[in-house]
Simulated assay, not measured.
Amino acid sequence: MTTSKTLHLPNHLYEYLLSVSLREPELLLQLREETARHPRANMQVAPEQGQFLAFLVKLIGARKTLELGVFTGYSSLSVALALPPDGKILACDISEEFTAIARRYWQKAGVADKIDLRLAPATETLEKLLAESSAETFDFAFIDADKENYYRYYELVLKLIRPGGLIVIDNVLWSGRVTEADIQDLATNAIREFNSKLHQDERIDLSLISVADGLTLARKR
């Protein structure tokens, strides 16, 4: 199970963290509260994580971004609100049901025109972008999709991101299961392998931080 708050912080300290740092627009709060009632609510990104993504987008001056794994749209809405008026998100997902919620909030927030949602396997969408000469044209990417394909997604996204661009990958601490040797399921092993490969990847500058369920920041050299 993934987490919708930063790992291992006592509740009182986590609440304090939010109280002195979270600046959550009302529509994001409404979306978060609606998603909390969803049967797959554990897939929701934490609010401090959404704010951090928006901060990074502003910090690097991103205009053209990718998202792999939309769910109900909290991260994409956070990023869309942070983008300049001409900014765009190309968002990949396979669920019409989950992304219908996202679309509703994108419309309410007035950012639907910034988001190009592609309902297809992400590898197909990414390979199509590369075939359309979109290599090194994206500034920022957020990967939060099926863990077994993380490294495949990463390799494709790395080709699409410009030098100096940033890739952010979610769930890399996997609720601590990556450290438990007796846990050998496909997703956990995929994340372990992914983390190890990125540690050795000289094409990027790397930082893994313990926000939410663990975020890897990979800056393309």
Rank of each mutant, 00 (worst) to 15 (best):
T2F: 09
T2L: 12
K5L: 09
L7Y: 07
L7W: 14
L13E: 14
S21R: 10
P25L: 06
L28M: 05
R32P: 09
R37C: 10
N42Q: 01
A46M: 08
P47I: 08
Q49L: 15
G50N: 07
L59F: 14
G61D: 06
L66M: 05
E67M: 06
E67W: 04
S78H: 08
S78L: 05
V79A: 14
V79I: 13
L81E: 04
K88E: 15
I89W: 01
C92I: 00
D93F: 12
E97H: 05
T99C: 01
I101K: 02
A102E: 08
A102N: 08
Y105D: 06
V111Q: 00
V111A: 01
D113L: 03
K114F: 03
D116S: 06
E124C: 04
A131L: 14
T137A: 15
D139C: 00
F140A: 03
Y150E: 02
R152F: 01
Y154A: 05
L156V: 11
L156E: 08
L156F: 12
P163E: 15
D170Y: 03
S175E: 12
R177D: 03
D182R: 03
D182N: 06
I183G: 15
L186M: 07
N189I: 00
A190P: 09
E193W: 02
H199Y: 15
D201R: 05
I204R: 01
S207A: 13
S207P: 12
A212D: 15
